[in-house]
Amino acid sequence: MSAKHYDALVAGAGPAGCAVALALQKLGVDTLLVDRPLAQPFRIGESATPDVAGLLERLGIQHDLARHRPYHGNLALWGAETPQLDHFLFRGRGHGWHLDRAAFDRMLQQETMASGVAFLGQSGLDGIAPADGGWRLQVRGLGETFARVVVDAGGRRSPLASRLGVARHRLDRLQALACHVDATGELSGYSLVESCPYGWWYAAALPDGRALVALMTDHDLARDLRLEQPDAFLSAWRGTRLLAERLPPPQGIEAIHAFAAHSGCASRAAGPGWLCVGDALMGLDPLTSSGISGALSDALAAAPAIAGMLDGDASLARSYARRANDSFSRYLAERRQHYLLETRWRDQPFWRRRGALPPASG
């Protein structure tokens, strides 16, 4: 692949980046997709809600989700002394999937390349500067490249937009502490959620026979309680009710992996010659299980806005920004309502912080 001019450059090849590159290519937009090296092979974000299949079809992806595990709903011990089952069928929906996330991401990247998108993995942007009619970029492994529009699909840090001076608003310090264990318990196709004084637990069975177990808590609480340490993590796991019953903790764990899980958003969704999608646009609390669905939805909405930019029409980009603002406002209201359902530990810092959250505003 030689250096050249592109209509659009997409930075980040997760679900949002691949999906927007695919959608752009189908609109005839010559697109370069750039991905940075993966920081660590351990991945979370394995839940795909029932609408994901339809979103993949809208992107023209002939998916094979049968290799992944069916995800029928959530079993939660939250705000009550007995577990509550929220089955997707109760809402008139089919099942979702607990994904082999690495395989799912590879599938999206392969579909993207097969569509004709130029893809440069193990890369990244070393520089960006405005140029006549677009942007001059230094792409690792490619050199100087020109793109008329750049798309930030780089995750919760909004790394590309931040280089352009776009602020990122962070609403909390939620962190996911996660590990993989043998799935010896009874998870039965459901995500398990259990609240606790310092946050909440999550578990789901994965296609490879293991289970993902994650503790969601604030960064300072994790530090003070030493929950990043395997022994403290296991001790806290043993103190759960539903989780310890359905998935008994092992004798030991080699390592706990930490991931940012905070809620936040870019201060602007789009501007002259640039646009954000996926977590780079807005990062949502893992309670929603909507990361992949939201990424694909964003991409489908972003592609015509980007095509409009290339044609000199900014109206669709403004509509995209209004859509993002409305979505985040709804999310804030729903998030606040859900956390307020748990009253048993309202005097604890984790829950007091969520109870004090202001109501959503436009």
Rank of each mutant, 00 (worst) to 15 (best):
Y198A: 15
Q138M: 13
A178Y: 00
L212F: 05
E111W: 06
R238A: 14
A211G: 02
A305M: 14
G312I: 03
L206W: 03
F88N: 00
A333N: 02
L65N: 11
L65E: 14
A299W: 05
G189A: 05
C179I: 03
A66L: 15
S158Y: 00
P41F: 07
L206P: 08
A307R: 01
G283H: 10
S263A: 03
G273A: 03
S191T: 00
G96P: 06
C18F: 02
G264A: 11
A324I: 03
L59A: 02
E228S: 15
S289W: 04
G45I: 04
D172G: 01
P197F: 10
G79I: 01
P250T: 05
L99K: 13
R163Q: 07
G96K: 14
S195T: 01
L9S: 00
L340C: 14
A80R: 09
H95R: 07
L89T: 15
L59D: 10
A16V: 11
R210S: 04
R323N: 12
E57M: 12
A153N: 01
V181C: 09
D326K: 10
L77A: 07
W345G: 06
G17P: 03
L243M: 06
F233T: 11
L164E: 04
P304L: 02
R67M: 00
A321L: 09
D105L: 08
T49G: 05
W200I: 10
D105C: 07
R69Q: 00
C265R: 15
L187N: 03
G312D: 08
